[in-house]
Design a protein around this nucleic acid. Structure first.
Length: 311
DNA sequence: GCATGGGTACTAGTTACGTCA
DNA sequence: ACTGACGTAACTAGTACCCAT
């Protein structure tokens, strides 16, 4: 599944807590804050409400093994044909339930226990699951069944645990390549998705700062060049270069600026190397971290005539 | 070879329960 | 005893891929 992670806009507005608005939203929702729409019961809530009003079912001890849980449907324990049968059947059911308007009720009857009771896995169960996760972060149907049998859980529970575990563990993130450029100190060694989102946010904030600074510097440079253009006696003394040379102080072509100068000089027959040296003599080069790995700044060849861009 | 539909397996996001300070 | 924060099990919705037709 290929995803375009770097489609993020850099025109993010950072709120007072340092998070872009949509990330703040993510942050808050992950912290289980009730959403605005929670006034109206969601399907699961309907299910819960329905169950709360029906006293016909006995309360089950969900920490008991499936075989011991009274009334539980154990169809999955033999789920050879459908390792993800519950999810799949739920997916298949969704459309029909939507049409029938009987959402949520049929699941109960399939499950046998009605409401969502939360199982707390024992330390042993968690340890075995962790061990298994270290070996392979995904399970094939056989492994899932074996693990479920070993742990006395339903295969669906093992499956859910692995899904949640994968969500919690992020080794590679879309912005991980920026961490070398912008090291972020983290107090906690364990990477959760939420923590990684915070780190990503910090990376983007720093990149944004750098780009703003770069933009300011370039605008200043354009102004200087424009002023230079208006004083003809200055480049009367300059000899046109035959080749474009590297800047001796920074040992690079000074990024897009020199490229734009080269482009401009090729069309205007102006001396870029001398301009460059002049700039070095007249203002200090800022040594920044390596430029962020996204699109280089494109300047029009006629940028010397263009009015300064507003940031 | 192609379109199509069903099944499967996954991710992202959300909800709700259990625990703890 | 109560409460809010937090971790996480369980859920929904959506998507990609595979395979049979």
């Amino acid at each position: 599944m290929e995803k375009e992670y770097l489609g993020l806009s850099l025109s993010l507005n950072f709120s007072s807590n340092g998070f872009p608005s949509h990330l703040s939203l993510l942050h808050s929702s992950s912290a289980s804050q009730p959403s605005s729409s929670s006034c109206q019961p969601k399907p699961a809530q309907w299910r819960h409400l329905l169950h709360a009003h029906s006293e016909s079912r006995p309360i089950l001890d969900v920490n008991q093994a499936p075989s011991a849980a009274a009334g539980r449907n154990n169809e999955e324990d033999g789920g050879v044909s459908s390792p993800n049968s519950r999810a799949s059947s739920a997916t298949a059911k969704r459309s029909t339930e939507r049409e029938a308007g009987s959402r949520g009720v049929s699941d109960e009857e399939d499950d046998g226990d009605g409401c969502r009771k939360k199982l707390r896995l024992s330390k042993d169960q968690s340890a075995i699951l962790e061990e298994s996760f270290k070996e392979h972060s995904t399970l094939n149907p056989k492994q899932k069944l074996a693990l479920a049998k070993q742990l006395n859980l339903r295969p669906r529970q093992v499956e859910v645990w692995f899904q949640n575990r994968r969500a919690r563990c992020l080794d590679q993130t879309p912005l991980s390549h920026l961490e070398d450029l912008y090291p972020v100190e983290s107090s906690d060694a364990t990477k959760t998705k939420l923590k990684q989102t915070e780190v990503d946010c910090e990376l983007l904030r720093r990149c944004c700062q750098d780009l703003t600074e770069e933009n300011r510097r370039l605008q200043k440079e354009v102004l200087e060049l424009r002023a230079l253009k208006l004083s003809p006696q200055l480049y009367m003394h300059m000899t046109p270069p035959t080749t474009l040379t590297l800047c001796p102080s920074c040992e690079r072509a000074c990024g897009s600026t020199s490229a734009a100068l080269a482009a401009a000089s090729s069309s205007r027959n102006q001396p870029p190397a001398e301009y460059h040296q002049f700039l070095h003599q007249h203002h200090r080069h800022q040594q920044r971290p390596v430029a962020p790995p996204w699109a280089p700044i494109q300047l029009r060849p006629s940028f010397l005539d263009a009015p300064p861009q507003r940031s």
